[in-house]
């Protein structure tokens, strides 16, 4: 018996298949990350709708559950068009989609990541997007099971002056306790703990922090490189 579902989802990547079709990877509301073949997905009519970052209403159908399945799509919201003229925001959108596409296992329901990602993309047009992006990466790490403990110092238990993170345990370290090992610890920008303003340098420190844990806990075990889109975002923020 054929299996099918209808769901709303965020387009993570689109890969051309043959001349007219496309394989679309989608982060759905109720079914997790799913891929499907969209017939004529590379056509002029569909190309605008099938862009990473866009929200679509999708119907997926396959003869057996383990098949790739075919998908039909209807555009709900075009986040990509909203940020296309802004290089930084476009880089953040590409990076978020590429990270999720690379990180999440297929067909596992991840409601928190889905909600957090959609909320981040919806707010991408407003100020402070770079800091929100860094916080979103921290949330993704937590949802994947590699959450950092930034509440108290790993050495002294102090909750004051937390400025480092241990690259091994992922726990915060205070300035005093971390001083002798400062060159081996990761910087903890204050905006990740409190709702404070973040400079570009703070955001870059935060991305170095999350990047370290993505690299060591996820990508190196999967023998995958970090997505190029994330590196491009960091290059852009560093300018």
């Amino acid at each position: 018996m054929a299996v099918s579902w209808e769901d709303q989802g965020l387009i993570l990547s689109v890969r051309r298949h043959g001349e007219y079709d496309a394989i679309v990877s989608l982060l759905t509301e109720n079914n997790g990350r799913y891929a499907g073949l969209v017939k004529a997905g590379a056509s002029r009519r569909m190309k605008g709708a099938l862009q990473p970052g866009n929200i679509i209403k999708a119907s997926w159908r396959a003869r057996l559950d383990e098949h790739l399945g075919t998908m039909s799509a209807e555009l709900v919201r075009s986040h990509s068009a909203e940020v296309m003229s802004d290089p930084g925001r476009l880089a953040a959108l590409s990076s978020a989609c590429a990270l999720i596409d690379a990180l999440l296992p297929e067909r596992q329901h991840q409601p928190e990541i889905e909600r957090g990602t959609i909320a981040f993309l919806r707010s991408l047009g407003t100020e402070g997007w770079a800091a929100r992006y860094a916080r979103w990466e921290l949330d993704v790490l937590r949802e994947l099971g590699f959450g950092l403990d930034l509440t108290a110092c790993a050495g002294t238990g102090s909750i004051e002056n937390l400025v480092f993170v241990s690259p091994k345990s992922g726990r915060a370290v205070s300035a005093e306790a971390g001083a002798p090992y400062a060159n081996r610890l990761l910087a903890l920008p204050a905006f990740l703990r409190e709702q404070t303003e973040a400079s570009d340098a703070d955001v870059l420190s935060a991305l170095a922090l999350t990047g370290h844990f993505f690299e060591t806990h996820v990508f190196s075990s999967q023998r995958q490189p970090m997505p190029a889109a994330r590196s491009r975002l960091i290059e852009r923020l560093a300018k």
């Binding site: 190309k47 990509s80 290089p87 476009l90 959108l93 852009r236 300018k239």
Partner: peptide, 15 residues
């Protein structure tokens, strides 16, 4: 192209 890849390339060339 007015696509994510097209405009990412355009911004890169601009830089």
């Amino acid at each position: 192209s007015a696509t994510v890849d097209g405009q990412t390339t355009a911004h890169y060339i601009t830089d």
